Computed example of a mutant assay.
Amino acid sequence: MSDHEIFDELTSEQPARPAPRQRVRGGGGRLNLNARWVVAVLLAAVVLAGTFFVQSFSQRQAQPSASPSLAVPQGTVGGGESAIDSPAPTGDGLTLGTNPNAVEARPSARASVVPIEAPVRQNPDRSDPEAVMKAWAVTWSWRERPQESARVAEWVEPFSDTHVPDAFATAEPVVGVQAPFMVTDAQVLPRSKNQGIDTDFRKSRVVRVTVRDHRNVQVVLTWELTTLQDEAGQWMVTDVSMTAWEGVPS
């Protein structure tokens, strides 16, 4: 056998190779199949992610939003209509608010912590200079409402011949109390060194008045008063000044 015959035999035994066009087509089919699988997986992942996002958003929308708690406004204690106990008169004809547990006869327009009695018109013994000074200080230091100067001036007119600025004419006077406030105690003390000496027709004294307002704030007011006696033997307040005020523990 010649060399050409051996070569021809080897050549004829090898399988025939596919044409170049056929190899390209076969490879392209496999690539298309893999691409479709990848696209399908990606689409499934996108659908699942979208479903999870929608569910999460719906749950957040369904939950009530948290808001800070608001402070509940505190209620106020108002005065109620009730019978008022009669204040106890003093030995010199002076009437004070001596019953701190008495309730106002009328409802108060302002919030109250403690009940305050209405002012009581004083009727002092005009022949006693100390009784006159005490009655003046009590009348001037007892207020049912601010700006009561006219009522106070009318009540002290029978035993007063003086005009003084009203220290309680505003809603919040400088002395620390707020109307309504009442007198709970009044004491007549010897005259101060700033006052003139006593004579047969002139007497001077210091009157200390304790007042308590509707908030249970207590203040001691110190008044210096002078009285003169008229021809009929009646005493009348002629000079007044408030020299001090100080708070008292409740």
Rank of each mutant, 00 (worst) to 15 (best):
V183D: 09
T184K: 14
S58I: 11
S58D: 12
P107G: 02
P173E: 02
G97L: 09
W245E: 01
G233V: 02
V77Y: 05
R205L: 01
V237P: 09
L189D: 09
R23N: 08
D185F: 10
Q195N: 07
R106G: 00
E231S: 12
D213C: 07
T222F: 08
V220Q: 15
S250W: 06
V237E: 07
W223N: 00
E148Q: 15
F57W: 14
Q55E: 05
K134H: 02
L48S: 05
L42K: 06
P173S: 02
W136L: 03
W245P: 00
S12R: 15
S241L: 06
D8F: 03
P190E: 15
T243G: 00
W37Q: 08
A16W: 05
S127G: 11
V132I: 04
G196I: 04
H4V: 11
W140T: 03
G247M: 12
R121K: 09
S58R: 15
N34S: 10
G78I: 06
D3N: 04
T184S: 14
A167C: 05
S12D: 13
M133Y: 02
Q59I: 10
L94W: 03
D125E: 07
T226F: 10
D3M: 06
V183G: 02
D198Q: 08
P190S: 11
R208L: 07
N216P: 03
F53A: 08
G28S: 13
V54S: 06
R17T: 06
T90F: 04
W155P: 01
E148P: 01
E5L: 12
M242K: 03
L228H: 11
V219L: 04
R126S: 04
A109W: 03
P180S: 04
S204K: 05
I6G: 00
T170G: 09
V219R: 12
V138W: 03
R151Q: 13
V41R: 13
P119G: 04
D8H: 01
M182Y: 05
F159C: 00
P158Y: 07
T243R: 15
T76A: 08
S12P: 01
I84G: 04
P100K: 08
N194H: 10
R17K: 13
N99Y: 07
W235P: 09
E5A: 14
V164T: 14
V240F: 07
F53C: 01
L42N: 05
A83Y: 13
R212Y: 03
S241H: 12
T199W: 09
L43Y: 01
Q195S: 06
S127E: 14
L221C: 02
P15Q: 08
R110F: 13
P165F: 07
V220P: 01
P129M: 13
N34I: 11
M182Q: 15
